[in-house]
Amino acid sequence: MPELRYIQAVNAALRWSLASHPDTIYFGEDVALPGGPFGATKGLYDEFGKSRIFDTPITEQAFLGMALGASLTGLRPIAEIMYVDFAFVAMDQIVNQIATARYASGGRNKAPLLIRAQQGFSPGSCSQHSHSAEAYFAHTPGLRIGLPSTPDDAYQMIRSGVQSDDPVLLLETRMLYPTKGIVRLDTAVEDIGGARTIRAGKDVTIVSWGSMVPSALDAADVLTARGIEADVIDLRWLSPLDMTTVIESVSRTGRLVITHEANLTGGFGGEIAARCAEEAFAHLKAPIVRIATPDVHFPAAPSLQIALLPNAQSIAEAATRLVGYQK
């Protein structure tokens, strides 16, 4: 099993998708001959040709609508939104059209399409290239939403997404593209959904997804040095949402920290907190805490960006406070 960078795992999954699904086509901006601005589609144009992978003009709204129409009529398109920030240009197609296709037909129509985008801050990125947008979409019924945090998940979740009969939105993390990990290239394709416990502990549960997963793991190291053992869960999919894994953990630890890069208010952390309050109230030994970017746009200046982002330290501090909490 090879060790690949996250972006190479994406590339491998897309190659697999085009090779194993003759109905899959791939389009977006600068994806064909150029191989994508981050190299996600490198080599695919040479391998599969222009009938399977092609560039669109700068037309997010039109090409996502086109993905929907193609999916309704027998193709399984993958459409790439270069930065999730540009998906806002196409919100009508995502929310009013793609997400409603199945329901509004009484279940007769299906829209098996995959939208790939990447998100989050990077040093110097301005507010228009830094959104962590998962909550905007998670609010919309009908969409499947995944946030891979490792190369292997990038590989597996793209393959699951391509095989799903629902519209799937995968939000990758640009800052994680260079990270490396073992990728299981030949495993069976998983169904979409399923959280994963990536570290076991008994004192506090830390739930995260996408860009903040590495910080959650680092926080667990900080906590171990303090004699606190954290159960760390990578949620992976916001839809379908695996609350079973979360509730099981919180029921054991009695304490929950949720961390995400997206802004605090209306962030998906609020949903996890509400469900734990509803379903695991009797087990809670302390209030549920969310560690997120405060309600502010991302500035370009790195010194300000760092001041706003959650990190291992702020997660560990929150967990430590919960462990010391007296009712």
């Binding site: 700068i58 920030d85 540009f86 240009v89 110097g124 301005c126 507010s127 228009q128 290239h129 746009h297 500035p299 370009a300 200046a301 790195p302 010194s303 300000l304």
Partner: peptide, 30 residues
């Protein structure tokens, strides 16, 4: 990324504005 009199380091190269100079601004959304 300095505390400039333009946009205090909030905008950077792709999105700054200066209304006092008659410059409505850049935009990084095409």
């Amino acid at each position: 990324g300095r505390e400039s009199d333009l946009n205090s380091g909030r905008a950077g190269s792709p999105f700054f504005s200066s209304l006092k100079d008659g410059f409505l601004g850049e935009n990084s959304i095409v």
